[in-house]
Structure formats: C-alpha cells, structure tokens
Amino acid sequence: MVFTVDSFSAAMDVDFRPLTARDAGDAAALSTAVGWGMRRTDWERFVSLPAVRTVGGWRDGELVATATAVCYDAAVAWIGSIVVAAPYRRRGLGTRVFERAFDDVRDRVDVVGLDANDTGKPIYADAGFDDVLTATVYTGTPSADLDASGVEPLTDAARIAGYDATRVSVDREFLLASLLDDPDTRGVVTTDDTGYAIATPTRTGWAVGPLLADDRQTTHRLLAAVRDALDGDSFTINALGSAPAAAFAAAGLTDTRTLTRMTYPTPEPALTGRGVYANAGFALG
C-alpha cells in the first residue's frame, strides 16, 4: 500500500510542520494533558538531535498532534510519540500525523519500526507494517534478594557504544550520550562491560531502558543496581520478547500491558538481538 499525505480525508484544517525548540513546551503540555510521562527535556532532546525528525500539527495556532521518527543511519527509523489532543481524537488526526512521519522517513532507511497499541495496530497493518514480537511493560521494584555485585555507575556512552552496536546492529552512541548527559539520569554497567542499563526520569516516575546483557544473571545484577541507584523507587521497563519478559518477572516485576512491535516493509528484528532485554523507550526503539 502506498501512502501519500492526502490519502486520508482531512477531517479538519490542520497545519503540519516540523517541531522546533520553541515548540518543546507546547509538546510537553500536550503529552502531559493526555497522561504521557514525557517531560519538556525529552521534547528538547527530540528537536535538538539531528537524527530525529518531528511532525507537529496545529489548528488555530494550537499544537494538537505530534509524531517523531529517530533515524539510525540509513538502517532503521523508529516512529513514536504519536500524540493527539483529546478533543481531536477519532477524527483521523492520529492517522494523518503518523502518515506524515512515515512518508518522511520510509525512503531514507531500510526498515521503519514502531510499537503499536491495539488502537493503532490496524492502521499500521494497513500501511504495510508486520508483527515482529510482543513488547511487555513491567513495573515495580526488583526483589531485595537480587545482588548488584560487579556493577558500577555509567556516565560515558563511549564505554558501551560498541557493545550496544553489536547487539542492535546500528550505532546509537548519539542517543546513549544524550540520555547520559541528563544530570538526572542514572546509568549502570558491569565492571567487565557485559551489560548496561539506563534509568531516566519521567513526569510520572522512572523508566529503565535500554537494558542489554549477556545473560539473565547479568540482567538481574543490573536490575539490582538500578534498584539501589533509585533508592528503591518503582520504575517501568519494556521487555522485548518472551525471554526478557520471563527474566523481569523472575526479578519480581509485574507486567501491566503489551504492545506489538511492527516493522515495514517486511518483518525484521530491528533494534533487537541477542542480549537486548529492554528497549530505549517506545519513542526511541
């Protein structure tokens, strides 16, 4: 199926253009209004990173819709942050802003991916996206029995960039550096560099991801180190597939909902691979 920006009926007059730094506050207000955890800092990251392409939709001067796409070289683009103001839902606007983001990146990369909820999945399937795996959201605090030995603080993205690239098959150092540059972020890494995790603050709490590790035992040590770094605060983490989900459940975390990871034009394990236990967030892949 071929998408064009006019393939859906315009239910209302909306002006689309890329987001800029001056729009970060409005984007944060929009995502907050619909209950998302994104902060102004997150939107400032999106508009400042050259690898991130953005779309905003304005009606009568008000920002009413957003979408983002993170491009990892020419290999993968990850679409996310599809937010629509409550009064404009179920009027085709979410489809239109997704369509804009999709049209912007699909000829730039080999694979386009996203994580779909039940509402969006039929729209993405109609656009040619195929199911790849189930992503499960876990929440809670890891068991006090887990041992954090052999794990230390992580502050330098260069230390883990090579390890990360061998697992996800793209270079994400720019993203990892941006996450770790946030003074509120907590990163942990094993002393032998066989795994790492990053915890970032959200408007509603903490989110952990990416988390990459050589095995389940290392994953549990990383989760214990995150637990200690956050002083026992609860967090969310997104398991990519059944094995990571089982590891998080065994650590004492609770599953709360699922999404479907989808890719275009064919089913591809984009940004997943051996040892990729948790994604960087649904907006980042």
Rank of each mutant, 00 (worst) to 15 (best):
F8I: 01
A10H: 12
D26P: 04
L30C: 09
T32R: 15
W43I: 03
V47N: 04
V52R: 01
V55G: 00
G57E: 06
G57N: 10
A69Y: 01
C71F: 00
A74M: 03
V76F: 14
I82H: 00
R89A: 09
G92L: 07
R96Y: 02
V97F: 11
D103W: 00
D104L: 15
D107I: 00
V109R: 00
G120Y: 02
P122F: 06
F129C: 02
F129V: 06
V132P: 13
T134K: 08
A135L: 11
S143G: 15
A144W: 01
A144T: 11
D147E: 11
L154C: 10
A157F: 03
I160V: 15
G162A: 09
Y163F: 15
V168S: 08
V170A: 04
P183V: 06
P183R: 03
D184Q: 14
T185Y: 12
V188R: 15
P201Y: 08
G205H: 05
G209F: 10
T218A: 09
H220Y: 01
R221F: 03
L222I: 03
L222V: 08
A225N: 07
A229P: 10
L230G: 01
D231A: 14
F235H: 09
T236H: 09
N238M: 15
L240S: 05
L240C: 14
A243V: 15
A251N: 12
T256F: 00
P265R: 04
G273Y: 07
R274H: 15
A280H: 07
